[in-house]
Design a protein around this nucleic acid. Structure first.
Lengths: 116, 116
DNA sequence: TTTGAATACATAATAATACTATGTATAATT
DNA sequence: AATTATACATAGTATTATTATGTATTCAAA
């Protein structure tokens, strides 16, 4: 869709990655289910991560060495805790800045009509 | 990716549709090439719509009755002018508002870490 | 004058990505 | 006892954008 010079072409599609990385950057380690609940409460129920979207993305982020994982048993149930790596930290910051920049650009397009 | 209650699941993927509809809402009628140039200048070269993304999307918007088209010859070259329909007007406004709302939601997630 | 850039539209093939649906399994609640 | 919540996972599907390619005309530069 976009062939951007400043924005990676994953900016939009990759919003989920940005969300996950930013949460991990903020909270230290988290497990999958915890992430869905945090997103739900942070966004006031507006974003409800599905498992079919979350887990494959977590696996992808780990494959890219942006996060690491360690499995534990908590209260009889398996939990897989994810932590952000150093590379992931830099990536998270870059993604967030890109998103903010993109937002400004989009506003340049949609704002004029809003005030009509 | 998102299973939103307030946001359509096309919010992100459909940013291009929002852009096109908003431009048509603002400018009356436009032809394809004109849209790419307008986007380019409005976004300071940051978003460069490719033809492979633009034209299929225009056809899709027309199939959804959000825009209409009329072909003309200008200076020996074919031009297909697109105009927004009444349904499209409402859709454009809704999409823009959705985008702004989504932006606020995203900021709730990424902002805390930015100030660190 | 002819070559290349800009204008103008279109589509097929590919890649990326998220969603739906489904599966497994345990703990807690009703 | 049944349902809900917790917890992870993946196959299949759909959507969507990108790349690549094709056609065709006008205009500017070499």
């Amino acid at each position: 869709m976009y062939n951007c010079l400043m924005y990676s072409n994953e900016l939009i599609k990759g919003t989920l990655k940005t969300i996950i990385l930013k949460l991990l950057q903020d909270s230290g380690r988290m497990y999958g289910y915890e992430i869905t609940q945090r997103v739900k409460s942070l966004t006031d129920d507006k974003i409800n991560l599905t498992e079919g979207a979350l887990y494959p993305t977590l696996h992808k982020l780990q494959a890219e060495s942006l996060i690491t994982s360690e499995q534990e048993i908590f209260n009889g149930r398996k939990r897989k805790y994810y932590s952000i790596t150093e590379t992931g930290q830099a990536n998270a910051t870059a993604r967030a800045e890109e998103f903010i920049s993109f937002t400004k650009t989009m506003f340049a397009i949609i704002k004029p009509q809003l005030t009509k």
